[in-house]
């Protein structure tokens, strides 16, 4: 399994032709306490770079973009009950959605963990 990062602070973990997407620890730390997450419905068609989910703190709302094109298999329903999971486990239990990847070549150009670390350090 490989994990990639976008410059919009999403992570995507690949497992065969499916993937799990969430926001990075850096992103959650910038947002502060997360109070609400809206995840896409099963079956939703997402395009690379397009709106996929919404994450809100008390004073800010941010769109989460899909790192790749694909079809949503599952949105993380736990986030509806417990949006704080995004703060406590952004890159684990606080995942946003899973999707089937339409075109694996879209992963090219995403950063690996080291690359993302450098990217954040430069911000």
């Amino acid at each position: 399994m490989a994990r990639y990062f976008t410059d919009e602070h999403e992570w995507i973990e690949i497992d065969g032709d499916t993937a799990t997407v969430g926001i990075t620890d850096y992103a959650q730390s910038q947002l502060g306490d997360i109070v609400f997450v809206e995840v896409p419905d099963e079956g939703a068609q997402l395009t690379k770079g397009g709106d996929a989910a919404v994450v809100e703190s008390v004073k800010a709302a941010s769109d989460v973009y899909s790192p790749v094109t694909g079809t949503v298999i599952e949105g993380n329903q736990q986030l509806e009950e417990d949006p704080a999971l995004v703060n406590t486990a952004p890159e684990g239990e606080g995942w946003f959605f899973k999707l089937t990847i339409a075109d694996a070549s879209e992963l090219e150009g995403l950063m690996d963990e080291a690359g993302y670390k450098d990217f954040v350090a430069g911000l």
Binding site: F36, E56, S57, V58, K59, A60, A61
Partner: peptide, 12 residues
């Protein structure tokens, strides 16, 4: 729940 409102969401 002010993230619904214009001063945060602007055009959305």
């Amino acid at each position: 729940l002010s993230t619904r409102e214009q001063h945060i969401r602007r055009e959305k």
